[in-house]
């Protein structure tokens, strides 16, 4: 088991203007999730369901108040700093907003080079070659190395983000709405790229999205969250269509048709 999330509960603490503690409903309550090696799990839910918070908890960015996160058998929040650094290497992320996840004053080379500098001591020439290879892997050319983020389109910049995520050959990548802001052509291309990389490196993904079609097309298993709770876990992704839970049903019935003959709105 690559990743095991056991009974995670988390509440964002909030203080009001006059420093009074404000009680809030938990963002995550008793959430458990497992991801096996080489598999992709799609995490679905409406906005505000707690999907992204769970993603942060898994990445080690947000310590939960209760519960544990086991990555490769080791507790992410109990481990020593040294172990954590080693674990973090295998844990990468690609966010939705590609422009705000890169430093606008760094070139593509610097952006992709950063994880390499943190973990691997490569010579200047060696690093350049690695970055060139990574760019080719994600469908760009080594000549793009000198460009700044504003010189790329959204789809291209998302590829830079992916190149940075796969630079250290991680085991798990959290994809937090990674394709939601792209148009349909780029969406398809990036989904294809994810699939290719998965078979090439045996990657696992946690694919966080509200787009059931995209999640269905890439995932092996689907999980559905509602109001901080995990309400459905379908190890076979087709199980989502037969689920009885109202939250899942409302998600499935909101899928837009692929052909005008299958329109959902009943008003005509």
């Amino acid at each position: 088991m690559l990743l095991q999330v056991n009974g995670v509960t988390h509440t964002y603490r909030e203080t009001s203007l006059f420093r009074r503690r404000v009680a809030k409903a938990p963002v995550l309550s008793n959430v458990s999730l497992t991801i096996e090696e080489g598999k992709c799990v799609g995490l679905l839910g409406t906005s505000g369901a707690g999907k992204s918070t769970l993603g942060k908890v898994i990445l080690g960015l947000q310590a939960p108040q209760q519960g544990q996160v086991l990555f490769q058998g080791e507790d992410l929040y109990q481990a020593s700093a040294h172990t954590r650094k080693r674990l973090r290497r295998d844990l990468q992320v690609v966010f939705q907003d590609c422009y705000s996840s890169v430093n606008p004053r760094m070139t593509a080379e610097q952006i992709i080079g950063e994880p390499l500098e943190n973990y691997e001591r490569l010579s200047v020439g060696e690093q350049k070659r690695r970055i060139g290879d990574l760019l080719e892997m994600v469908g760009l050319t080594p000549a793009d190395m000198r460009k700044y983020p504003y010189q790329f389109s959204g789809g291209q910049l998302q590829r830079i983000n992916i190149a940075r995520a796969i630079a250290l050959k991680p085991k798990l990548i959290v994809l937090d709405e990674s394709v939601s802001s792209l148009d349909m052509v780029n969406q398809t291309l990036i989904l294809d790229l994810f699939r290719e990389l998965q078979s090439a490196f045996g990657l696992s993904y946690l694919f966080i999205t509200h787009d059931i079609k995209a999640a269905y097309s890439i995932s092996d298993a689907l999980a559905v969250m509602e109001k901080g709770k995990m309400v459905e876990m379908c190890h076979d992704k087709n199980g989502i269509f037969t689920s009885e839970h109202p939250a899942v049903k409302s998600l499935v019935s909101s899928i837009l048709p692929e052909h005008p003959r299958q329109r959902v709105l009943l008003s005509r």
């Binding site: 349909m184 052509v185 969406q187 398809t188 989904l191 059931i212 079609k213 995209a214 269905y216 097309s217 890439i218 087709n238 269509f241 037969t242 499935v252 019935s253 899928i255 048709p257 692929e258 052909h259 005008p260 299958q262």
Partner: peptide
């Protein structure tokens, strides 16, 4: 348009989108 796309670009758009088996519902 969905039944008989004429232009190559339209065909490409229709063929590349992610699909889901709707008849399962």
């Amino acid at each position: 348009l969905f039944d008989q796309p004429q232009h190559a670009y339209t065909k490409k758009l229709l063929n590349t989108r992610p699909t889901i088996p709707m008849n399962n519902q």
